[in-house]
Amino acid sequence: MTALLAASGVSVAFSGIRALNDVTLRVDAGERVGLIGPNGAGKTTLFNCLLGILQPDSGRVMLNGADVGGWPVHRRARAGMGRTFQRVELFSDTTVREHLLIAERIRNGSGALWKDLIGRGRPRPTEIAACDEVLELLGIDGLADQPVESLSLGQSRLVEVGRALMTGPQVLLLDEPSSGLDRDETQALADTLRAVQESRGYAVLLVEHDVSLVADFTERVYVLDSGSLIAEGPTAEVLADPAVRRAYLGSFEVS
């Protein structure tokens, strides 16, 4: 079976320093996969290679069996890769619903100038309903008309998830969703993410620092250390592995 998203033999060097060394990873349809590792392990570099923000020096990135190596970010997004950001990236001067509508419009009618001119560019009621449905799923339907500047960090993360969902992703890449959140907020976010993933059925690749969230949320996990994969497998097993614990200097506990 071809993987939904696969990286094979990806290597990246920054001015001579190996940031990623022959990393291979796969995410299958509907799966929840984690990618963990200490600071500087190369998680973000790998993430950027998958999304097309960074070109690897060698190795391939495949999406649904197609080599997406030369594709720019937006083309990969259209092919089914959604993402969220560690440092929240929202569109200023817009409301929450407007955020989702933008994504919905991009998916449906990509920037057709003449359609706008004859008045076909405005969001249709069905599109607005689709946005509201996602907002309800995420439990933020009450915020639909709020400007995004007024949201808390946790709420902003959910808006990012909602925006990504509107593109109809096959795989959603979550970049450190717990950063900046406290334990309760992280727990609430994890519950929502799981509920939404189960109802929509897309695959998730979670890049995360907070091991408890990874343990709670993912089925399978990859561990990066100093640019190389040091472990992979079912989450519970990998997290119990002494080598993995050593990489983290025993700084976490698995409940």
Binding site: H74, A77, F85
Partner: peptide, 9 residues
Amino acid sequence: VAAASIGIS
């Protein structure tokens, strides 16, 4: 970056 992430060129 966020615009690119939802498929905007």
